[in-house]
């Protein structure tokens, strides 16, 4: 992508996820940044919901992890969120990305839903090492 290298990213300090209170906090922070950047109400809700899903996954499967929110300022402006943990990892990413697949009797829509809510979605995971999900929404 042209101009990608010149892109600057401004991050606010990473937020540690270790309890449900922090999921609420991270949702509020991401909504605030998205609103400050000029995202509309619907996009704010989409981004906050996607982050809520991923942060909840961290808490549910890894117990703790980190969420980093940054604004991408360059040729193209956007918001990027990195959610990472050192939890059990995902053995079969394709299966985890399938609608309705869940190991914990939830709706099984968290990961595939987050992908649909955002413009870009990248997932890296290694069993026993952890998982990192990077999501981006362009303005």
């Amino acid at each position: 992508m042209k101009g990608f290298k010149q892109m600057e990213a401004k991050s606010i300090p990473s937020i540690e996820i270790a309890s449900t209170e922090e999921i609420v906090a991270v949702r509020q922070k991401v909504r605030k940044l998205a609103s400050d950047m000029g995202f509309g109400a619907v996009d704010q809700t989409r981004i906050a919901t996607a982050v809520s899903e991923l942060a909840r996954n961290i808490y549910q499967y890894a117990g703790k992890g980190e969420v980093t929110i940054s604004s991408l300022e360059g040729d193209r402006r956007g918001i990027q969120i990195v959610c990472e943990d050192s939890g059990p990892g995902i053995a079969d990413i394709e299966l985890a990305m399938t609608d309705g697949y869940s190991t914990v009797k939830s709706l099984g829509l968290g990961l595939p839903g987050a992908r649909r809510l955002m413009d870009e979605f990248e997932i890296e995971s290694e069993p026993g090492k952890g998982t990192r999900v990077t999501i981006t929404k362009w303005l």
């Binding site: 109400a41 619907v42 704010q44 809700t45 989409r46 919901t49 899903e53 609608d99 709706l107 829509l109 595939p112 839903g113 649909r116 809510l117």
Partner: peptide
């Protein structure tokens, strides 16, 4: 709300 309705559709709920 309309925002929540659209988000739910995208989530696939």
């Amino acid at each position: 709300s309309s925002q929540i309705a659209q988000t739910l559709v995208h989530l696939g709920v």
